[in-house]
Structures are given as C-alpha cells and as structure tokens.
Simulated assay, not measured.
Amino acid sequence: MEQFFNISVITDNFTYFMIGRFPHGPLGGVGLTLYLAAVSCVLSFIGGLLLGLLSISRYPVVRYPVLAFINLIRGMPLLMVIFWMYFLMPALFGKVAENNTVIMALTLFTSAYMSRIVVAGIEGIPKGQTEAAISTGLTHWQTMRYIILPQGLRNMIPSFVNQFVSLIKDTSLAFIVGVSELTHVATQINNRTMAFPTEIFVFIAIVYFILCYAFTSLSRWLEGRLAWRKAI
C-alpha cells in the first residue's frame, strides 16, 4: 500500500506546504494563499461597495460606465484578468511584484461580483424607509449612509463570506504567473520528486476542502444568527 500511497512526501514537506520558505525566505503555501485571499477580500469589499453604490447612482453619466465595467469584468474568465494585470501593471507602473498583480486581479474580479451583492442588499430594504428618511430632510446619500447601508450590510454578510470562500479557491490560478501559493508549491514538490503526484494533489485538495468548509460553516452560522435576530 505504501508503494501506491506514500504519505512521507507530505510529512517531509509539510512546513513547505504550509508557509513555503518563510521565515528564511518569502511566504508561500497555505500562508500565502490565505494572505492573497484576505487582502483581496478586504479590497474587494471596498471596491464592491463603491461599484455597487455607483451602479445605482441617479446620474446616468456615472451609472452606465460603472455598469459597463462590471459587466465587462464579470463576462471574462479570472485567468484572463490575471494575465491582464500581470502584463499591464508593469507596463504602467514599472516592476510590480507578482503577488500584487494577483491581488489586483482578484480584487477587480471579485469587486464586480460583490457589487451585485451590495445592490441586492440595498434593494432588499423596503422603499418606504428611504422615502421616510428623505421626508425628514436627509439627503439621498445621508439616507444611504445612515439608514439603508447599515441594514443592508448586515444582510450581505453571509454572501460576502461565500464570496470569500470562492476567493480562496480562485487563488489557485495565481500559480500560472509564478506566485508560490499552495497549488504552485504542490507543483514544485511534484516536479522535484516525480513520483508522488496522487499523494501531493490529494493532500492539497484536502487542505482546500478544510479551508472552504470552515468558512462555509461560518457563513451558515452567520445566516442562523441573522435569522434569529430578525425573529426577535
């Protein structure tokens, strides 16, 4: 059995799978995967919020270009967006670290999807609240800031967590431009050993499953908490 499924390649390289060469070199493996996902998620939240608000602007000169940008990004594969950032950013800004190009690509791609979550959350708030707030003298943006967004964002949390789970899986495409995240590390180890591809890729599949299942469970817990608070 050991001949067909030898876990020694996992135990011997476990630290490399988890953090790459860190602290004696750049962070890699699971650590870099989570770093890419976390930074991209925070930036995507900000970007998605801005794009979502601008896409429902009352001014067509603002709304239509933003909607065109959102539909353009959503209509393209993430791999293409990564290649765009990989070749475009150095051309515009000089030498840019591969990690930053991937973060930018993930941010643009995920922001486009998060913007629709924001719009759905805002549209889920009864229109009467907007009308009541405006009748008290609040401006449109004051109403959005103080009345609509606080309620809408609470309803968006489970969807944001689900998008974060998707983002963790999307980081696996970063290996195509040489970023040393989990999939790239697994490929390096597989190319070095040339004997245990099944063990290596089954292991990283299990790691991705554990990460995604943990955040999916968090999403279900948040949905339950929000439903319980609404019931009260």
Rank of each mutant, 00 (worst) to 15 (best):
L53R: 00
Y35P: 09
I70G: 00
S55N: 13
T187E: 14
G128N: 08
F109N: 13
T15E: 11
S111F: 07
I70K: 00
V179S: 04
Q151A: 09
E131F: 05
R225Q: 13
N162E: 15
K169Q: 15
I117A: 05
V66E: 07
I200G: 02
T143R: 05
T193W: 15
G47D: 10
V96A: 13
N190I: 08
V119L: 04
F93Y: 12
I73L: 14
I147N: 07
H140I: 09
T130C: 08
A174E: 11
Q163L: 08
P90C: 06
L153T: 10
I46L: 08
Q151W: 14
M156G: 15
A205E: 09
T143K: 09
M104C: 15
M80H: 10
G128C: 01
P23A: 04
T33R: 03
F45A: 01
N191D: 06
I122Y: 07
T183V: 13
I56P: 01
G29I: 04
I46R: 01
E223T: 01
T15A: 11
V161N: 04
I148C: 08
V185C: 06
P26C: 03
F45C: 03
I232M: 14
Q151V: 10
V42P: 11
I232G: 12
V207G: 06
E199I: 01
A68M: 00
G94A: 02
H184R: 00
I232A: 10
Q163R: 07
V202R: 04
I117V: 15
V118A: 03
H140Q: 13
M89V: 04
L78F: 08
A37K: 01
N162R: 09
M76I: 08
V39H: 13
K127Y: 14
L67C: 04
R145P: 00
V179R: 02
R192E: 05
L34W: 09
P197G: 07
F14W: 07
G124P: 03
M80K: 02
N13F: 08
C41F: 15
T15G: 13
F109R: 04
T183E: 04
N155I: 08
G137S: 12
F203R: 03
R225Y: 13
I147V: 08
I73A: 02
Y146I: 03
R225L: 12
Q3D: 12
H184F: 07
Q142K: 12
T33N: 13
V119G: 01
A227C: 00
F203E: 03
S180T: 04
F14V: 11
L173Y: 15
A68K: 00
N191I: 05
P60V: 03
Y35Q: 07
S44T: 02
E123W: 07
V96K: 05
P158H: 10
G137Y: 11
I103V: 14
F175T: 14
F196A: 11
A112L: 14
V81P: 05
I46A: 10
V61S: 06
R58H: 12
I125D: 04
L211A: 10
S180Y: 12
L27K: 02
V96Q: 11
N100L: 14
F5T: 11
F93P: 00
N100H: 14
M18S: 13
M144L: 15
M114H: 01
G224F: 06
L153N: 09
H24I: 00
L72V: 09
A97L: 05
G178D: 14
E223R: 00
N99F: 06
I200D: 12
V207M: 05
A37P: 00
I103G: 06
I210N: 01
Y59S: 09
